[in-house]
Design a protein around this nucleic acid. Sequence first.
RNA 1: GUGGGCGUAGCUCAGUCGGUUAGAGCGCCGGAUUGUGGUUCCGGAGGUCGCCGGUUCGAAUCCGGUCGUCCACCCCA
Length: 452
Amino acid sequence: MPPARSFSRLPGFRDFVPGDLALRNHIFDTWRRVSRGYGFREYDGPPLEPLDLYIEKSGPEIVEQLYSFDDKGGRQITLRPEMTPTLARILAGRSRGMPKPIRWFSMPQLFRYERSQRGRLREHFQLNVDIVGDAGVAADAEVLAVAIDAVRGLGLGDDDFVARVNDRRLVAEVLAAAGVDADGHAACLGVIDKAGRAGVAKTRIGLEALGLDESAVATLTELVADGSWEQLGRRFRDVTPVREAMEPLEEHAAILGAMGLGDYLHFDFTVVRGLAYYTGIVFELFDRAGEMRAICGGGRYDRLLELVGGEPLPAVGFGMGDVVLGELLRDMGLVPDATPSCDYHVIWVGPEQRALGLRASHRLRAAGYSVMYSLRTQGVGRQLKEASRNGAARAVIIGPSEAAAGSATVRDLTTGRQEVVPLDALTASVQASSGGSQAEPPGPPSPGGDRT
RNA sequence: GUGGGCGUAGCUCAGUCGGUUAGAGCGCCGGAUUGUGGUUCCGGAGGUCGCCGGUUCGAAUCCGGUCGUCCACCCCA
């Protein structure tokens, strides 16, 4: 026997014991149900990808954050940090033959090699929903509607979270109108992106550090401090390019308003989604109270497919992680009940009734019920204790007297009432008396699936 | 990657100035109960005090390192 040794989990990774997995599955079920409700079809790709796929898109500096290594064939590979490049790669080779727009969703596990914090691990699952091949604002609104409904489907409402929206083209026109030349846009976006966390004062300092003139700094600081839609309209009343750049978001809001989701929308000039590949409307979902990390982020990325060698197709989509969402649900008490349960617990009083009990159990299982029994030989009291601990709705007790009469005592563990029923009629009898709790018992086992 | 807080039973935590055999609640196992559960009562198991080293007659306690975790940066799925 080797000496005892303990193994710890890799940092930033999670174990999912049944209680935890119940929450994860609850989230997955909701994501899948809502996505399908909008007509999206599910896809997946490999968890490992060539390193180049991300260098192409985001630049070599992102390599620092990738969970990457060389494989035994000397290839530089990485655990996928996000799904969009994989989607772009998949579509690059086959989108030409596909009817547009393409509506796909996926729920990949993604990886990142960095220091973990609350809401941010080295691994997470992420709902990805994308529309490829449609450049219209209706597509932007459609994916945001999926994101909002995915969160609503988990029990959160407009008191709990908000969708902050912006448009990169609008930001570009505002910067131009403020007198920032094109070369300075990227640096400006970086400062504006941090404004929400850094505050107005630091933002002003940041903008001044970029060498912008005083009027440009004043204009942008004002927008960061009070970036309301009305404020923007007043400020640029006479600037046609800005007014025109506001139109897509107007229509976007009108569409979501017509869906009844208008209360979730909030224009926010500071939402620019880092320096990634976004080209149009961008959005993030945040919890209203706790100021956790973003629940979800996405937007339009019209040039990405081209970048990975596909046909040039416009695209829009988002990613929604399970970590922040799960913490939010926990905080709000919206986690599903994960206590064990089953329909029946079969009890035999002595070993002589075991065969009868096993046969009855198997029949009940074939009828679609979940059935347990004690694996160890023990008294009726102890077996009942186990039954209630396992969350059984009913106990089926078979002792010498029942066996002699070919019957069983069925005890309702909630009410304590019990009745004696013929063993042969057990399945039918219970189906009749418990039709409500057993919504739809599966039919008989398929041929060949149950050999005897 | 940088700076800081925290690591004691499966979980949440207490542990006095550095002092003899490290505790509680919950949970787990067993008994009261060999044909009737949940409640209750009684009992039990479970610890390298994260790990390594140092100071000391003596370390869960002080110091250094390390690992983990959390927070703030960095960055963002």
